[in-house]
């Protein structure tokens, strides 16, 4: 499983980082989220799904 950030939609709410800091980081200057890992480790799948659902901008998507 992969997660993709649409950086046009991302506005730096940082919900993804709050929910799954292992996977997401934020750029301080442009406040866009970035995915740190190429693929989502199985143990993070649940948290990742929550992060995707909670994004207020719908900027995250899962690719299986």
């Amino acid at each position: 499983m992969k997660v993709i950030v649409d950086s046009n939609r991302c506005q730096g709410h940082a919900r993804c980082r709050a929910i799954c800091p292992e996977l997401f980081e934020l750029d301080d200057l442009d406040q866009k989220s970035r995915v740190k890992l190429e693929t989502v480790p199985p143990e993070l799948e649940k948290k990742t799904a929550r992060a995707v659902n909670e994004c207020p901008e719908d900027a995250l998507s899962l690719v299986r």
Binding site: Q11, N53, E54, C55, P56
Partner: peptide, 13 residues
């Protein structure tokens, strides 16, 4: 599972 617009959305978040 929560989602809200209390901080707005878009460029003026």
């Amino acid at each position: 599972q929560n989602r809200h617009l209390s901080f707005g959305a878009g460029p003026h978040r």
